[in-house]
Each structure stands twice: as structure tokens, then as C-alpha cells.
Design a protein around this nucleic acid. Structure first.
Lengths: 124, 124
DNA sequence: GTATATGCAAACAATTTGCACGCCT
DNA sequence: AGGCGTGCAAATTGTTTGCATATAC
């Protein structure tokens, strides 16, 4: 995989935020650095970066969000303000227990808790 | 909410399978009973049934799958055969523990384990 | 009788793809 | 030099919506 200006910039953007951006948000961002980049290029690069495991992708509310942190963590989604928070929570033990019981080979897991976050609770 | 022939049929189909069907699969099924039903009607009904909490919806690989079992359970997705299995696994205790620690109000949770299922392991 | 649901087709939004050209290595 | 990456626009796909008609209650 080659590293074009576009690809480097996209990777940099995803890595440098913890806001779990969508392709469109990333597109707007890259355009500040690479004004005439096309949306197709953004999609192609995001896909390639995911395939090469340099970033992760997850679907929330039917839209794909990208995540630059590759460590073992899970997510909390506030149904009020639609923010996706990182949960510093490892499921390694939990998952290996399930593996033993069922005989599945587990490659990854994906826990998302939905609810109302602290700041939204205060607003109500 | 009224119960038209179409709506009854769609609910029946989703309730009577554990294969987590997509809208399109359901559309093909309903057409056997209601030949000139439209795809739009299928989508409208699925949405309404989800809104009224008669069925559940979850996104896997960017496509919405519907689930007629409302009990507390989670899912295992085989990345080899793309089957979504039910996991008879309650996360109630686990989740309430996290709630206490972080102060979030949790409305629901969604765990998906990805890997290779037993029959796919045997095939390889 | 009236509100709600339907079929149909057009509109949408997110994403993918074909193609000719351009740039990394 | 050769292959991978790009920009652009058109195509796909999954889903939603507007409208006139039909149906449940």
C-alpha cells in the first residue's frame, strides 16, 4: 500500500480525534488540507485503511463511524445527544469464557451500551 | 396501530424465524402470501413494528436485520458464513455494574461477538 | 365515516465503481 | 517504467416519501 498525500492526511485525521467521525465529516476535514480531494477517494481510503487494520469501523444508527484507537475498548452511545463515547473496558476475560463454553473461535467483539450520558442527565 | 393483512403477515414472518432476516428477505416471503405487496409497505411496517417494540432491529455489515425474539440475549456473527446466531447470554449484571461505576443511565446494550462458528471450523 | 394503510414510482442518501489521467517508489 | 492512487461522474443499493386509492375499525 502506497502513501499518497490524501491517504496520509485521512489516516492522520482519524487517528487524531476520538469523536468517531463519519466519512462525510472526514471529507470536510481533508478538504482543508487537500481542497480538491474527491469523496470517492475518501471512501476508498477509509476502506483500505480498515482492511489493513490501521483504523476500525463501526456502524451506529445505520451510518459508519471510524475509530483510530485500536486498543481493546468498547463504546457507550448516548441516545439523547447521539455522542459515541469510548469505554475503557476490556472484554478479554469475558469473551474467552464464552469461547470455551460454545466452541466458537472469536476474532473480535463489539459491545455497545445505549443510554443517557452524565451531561445529558444534568440537562434534564 | 391497525392490523392489516400485510402487517400481520410481516409480524408473523419475523416472529417465526430465528434467522434475523433483512427487509428484502421478508419482502420475498410476504409475497408468497400477499403477492402484490410493495417493498415500501414492508419497510414502513418493519419500522412501525420496531417503534412499537414488537420486534427488534440490528445493523450487521451495514444492513438492518430484524429479530422477533424480544428476550435478553446477544449475538454471535460468523465472519465465514455470515450467519448471525443467537447467544443465550444475559448481560444484566454486567451492565448494571458498569452503570454504577460510570453514572450512565443504560437503556440497552448490544454485544456482538465475531468469529468462526463450529460448522465452519469443521469445514476448514 | 374517517383515520390509517396500501401500491406505485420517484426521491434520497450513503457508498461503490469505471475510466482516463497522475503520481509514488 | 509500471502499478497503484486520484478526480470525476455515473451507477448501485438500501431505504424513505408523496400521492391517490383502498381498508380497518
Amino acid at each position: 500500500m502506497r502513501y499518497s498525500k490524501q491517504r496520509k492526511e485521512i489516516l492522520e485525521i482519524v487517528k487524531s480525534t476520538n469523536s468517531h467521525p463519519t466519512a462525510d465529516w472526514i471529507y470536510e476535514r481533508v478538504r482543508m488540507q487537500v481542497p480538491n480531494i474527491s469523496l470517492g477517494t475518501v471512501y476508498r481510503n477509509l476502506r483500505q485503511l480498515v482492511d489493513n487494520d490501521l483504523i476500525h469501523a463501526r456502524t451506529v444508527n445505520g451510518m459508519v463511524h471510524y475509530d483510530g484507537s485500536l486498543g481493546d475498548h468498547q463504546h457507550f452511545y448516548c441516545t439523547n445527544c447521539n455522542t459515541l463515547y469510548d469505554l475503557d473496558l476490556s472484554l478479554e476475560d469475558f469473551v474467552s469464557e464464552i469461547t470455551e463454553n460454545l466452541g466458537y473461535v472469536i476474532h473480535g467483539c463489539d459491545l455497545q451500551l445505549n443510554g443517557v450520558c452524565n451531561s445529558c442527565q444534568q440537562d434534564q
